[in-house]
């Protein structure tokens, strides 16, 4: 009972501390799902580059299990800057009624010429040589409506194959996909980074198609925030974006690669030498100025609608606010 009381006092004190702090810097919470892939997992590892941190804003990075929880958090104002896939962005606006959700930056893009594009593998000995051969087969997915799932469905749709009617979808986590294919649980699996480099997968599997063939350039993951929050805290958000750009420039700079690999290793417990690909041309394209490709995003969002995941058309330009990132960029230019 005593410890309970202490716990209660602790909670109260914490709450009070939070209340007094609210008068000072703006609190920004940023989400991430997959370590290293999302900027949210990396930014605070280089907080010494963030000049406005603790002055005009404070930053908390929070891990989320997936998109559903992320959308719930945005709707409840528990999260200010989130990573969303092109496929979940229209869902958040249409179904979760977050009408003031805005694209504020790029996280990464798929299929930009010269960079990585997601690969879709079959077994070499499977006799599957073209997409049509997948009729009656089992296709691995990480969940209906995910970025990967939509790309895959779009490709099969182009070749006249529909889920449930022509092929079975089997859900499994992305890291388990190579094993699912090699253990013959699935006949087609998506391979994202770093699992696409799996030597066993490369040896026993072959690429049936890549994502570029399905969707062209894909604006895979975007950074989003609510207009209401941006309007209220514009100055702090520009400061934050400026700092974020500094951090992103640092990570993408080839001369920092060794240190970057070390940070990635620390987050994932994978030896640093296995991160040779990270932020190079072998990786997905990441815009150094966090500029999203709105034209690609528009195309991608339209596919999401064609496949029936959302009903209303969405004009991406109406739901983007790139002024933050542009202002931040201009400030960095001037500082040089």
């Amino acid at each position: 009972m005593r410890s309970l009381k202490f716990a209660l006092i602790g909670v109260l004190a914490f709450g009070l501390a939070g209340a007094t702090r609210a008068a000072e810097p703006v609190k920004i919470r940023m989400s991430w799902v997959v370590p290293v892939a999302n900027w949210g997992s990396l930014v605070l590892e280089k907080k010494e580059l963030m000049q406005h941190l603790g002055k005009s804003y404070t930053l908390e990075t929070v891990r989320y299990q997936g998109t559903p929880q992320t959308i719930t958090a945005i709707a409840n104002n528990e999260l200010e800057v989130a990573s969303l896939a092109y496929s979940t962005f229209p869902i958040a606006i249409e179904n979760a009624n977050i009408a003031d959700l805005r694209v504020i930056g790029d996280e990464f893009q798929d299929g930009v010429p010269g960079y990585f594009t997601d690969l879709y593998f079959v077994r070499k000995d499977s006799g599957i040589n073209k997409v049509e051969d997948l009729k009656g087969k089992v296709v691995g997915t990480n969940g209906g409506g995910s970025a990967i799932d939509v790309a895959q469905r779009a490709m099969l749709h182009k070749h006249g194959l529909e889920p449930n009617r022509d092929y079975t979808l089997l859900e499994a986590p992305l890291p388990a996909m190579p094993a699912m294919l090699l253990e013959k649980k699935a006949d087609l699996v998506p391979a994202v980074l770093p699992f696409a480099f799996n030597p066993k997968l490369r040896e026993e599997g072959k690429v049936l198609f890549n994502q570029t063939e399905a969707l062209g350039v894909t604006q895979m993951i975007i950074l989003v925030a609510r207009q209401s929050f941006i309007d209220k805290n514009r100055a702090a958000m520009v400061d934050y974006m400026e700092d974020l750009l500094r951090v992103v420039h640092w990570y993408l700079d080839p001369k920092n690669h060794d240190e970057v690999a070390k940070i990635a290793s620390k987050l994932t417990k994978v030896p640093p030498e296995r991160f040779g690909w990270l932020f190079t041309k072998q990786d997905n394209y990441r815009d150094p100025d966090l500029m999203p490709n709105l034209e690609a995003l528009q195309r991608n969002v339209d596919v999401v609608r064609e496949l029936g995941f959302v009903k209303q058309p969405l004009d991406v330009k109406q739901h983007a606010d790139l002024s933050l990132v542009q202002e931040a960029r201009a400030r960095l230019e001037k500082g040089k």
Partner: peptide, 15 residues
């Protein structure tokens, strides 16, 4: 749970 989730998402199954 955070460690299990983030390591699992990256496929670092040994950790």
């Amino acid at each position: 749970g955070y460690l299990i989730g983030s390591l699992g998402a990256n496929g670092s199954y040994d950790a």
